[in-house]
């Protein structure tokens, strides 16, 4: 464990908690893409099946359980409890255009052709594009609430910190995982446009960003 990975995990946890609390406190999921949240729940489910097969550390197990729990709680709030506030008309990204190619790629490019490893690979590829429905929805509505932009900032920051973690681990441990690194680079690049808006709009204090 290094400071970049720890900060990355905490940033990820912060994003997940921020979103869950925002929906819970405002009792509304307006402006939130339910599709992205379903994809994240799928990412955690397929990646953390090793909870049943191997124990790495208390930290690892605890965080996985928190991530999975919060992901499903968020999906529940969006599609069940606060269903009336779900903005289905703007959450129209065709997720099958993500899941199918990612599923195929996971079969073609992986470290080991075993069920757990293919599911892990699927999860890594899917996570890199899972935010697209959310970014698409924001571009359609033309605005995002401030709290939603903080959620996206921490979510984007987490994988950027993981990229530094992988540089650190390669240099100090000789460890590197090409699949995770390539997917992580793609994932972080998808946030660049948002990061630019977040920083520039954040300074002007306007409470909504208007992506191009």
């Amino acid at each position: 464990m290094n400071i970049f990975r720890l900060t990355g995990d905490l940033s990820h946890l912060a994003a997940i908690i921020i979103l869950l609390l925002k929906i819970w406190k405002t009792r509304s999921c307006a402006g939130i893409s339910g599709k992205s949240q379903v994809l994240f729940a799928l990412v955690f489910t397929t990646r953390y099946l090793d909870l049943l097969t191997s124990f790495i550390s208390l930290y690892n197990t605890t965080m996985k359980i928190i991530y999975i729990g919060c992901a499903y709680a968020t999906v529940y709030l969006i599609y069940m409890k606060f269903k009336a506030t779900y903005d289905g008309n703007h959450d129209t990204f065709r997720v099958e255009f993500l899941v199918v190619p990612v599923g195929g790629l996971a079969f073609l490019v992986n470290h080991d052709f075993s069920p757990l490893e293919i599911l892990w690979t699927f999860s890594i590829y899917l996570e890199s594009v899972a935010i697209l429905p959310q970014l698409f929805m924001i571009s359609k509505t033309g605005e995002a609430e401030t709290i939603t932009t903080h959620y996206l900032f921490f979510l984007g920051l987490y994988r950027a910190l993981y990229l530094i973690n992988w540089i650190w681990r390669f240099y100090f441990e000789g460890f590197f995982d090409m699949i995770a690194i390539v997917a992580g680079v793609v994932q972080t690049i998808l946030y660049c446009d948002f990061f630019y808006l977040y920083v520039t709009k954040g300074e002007s204090g306007s409470n909504k960003i208007n992506p191009a």
């Binding site: 990975r5 995990d9 990820h12 990646r47 090793d50 191997s54 790495i56 690892n60 965080m63 996985k64 991530y67 470290h111 080991d112 892990w120 993981y162 973690n165 995982d177 995770a180």
Partner: peptide, 10 residues
């Protein structure tokens, strides 16, 4: 070919 090294990251 990677060993059965587990994924230790989240």
């Amino acid at each position: 070919e990677r060993s059965e090294e587990r994924h230790d990251e989240l």
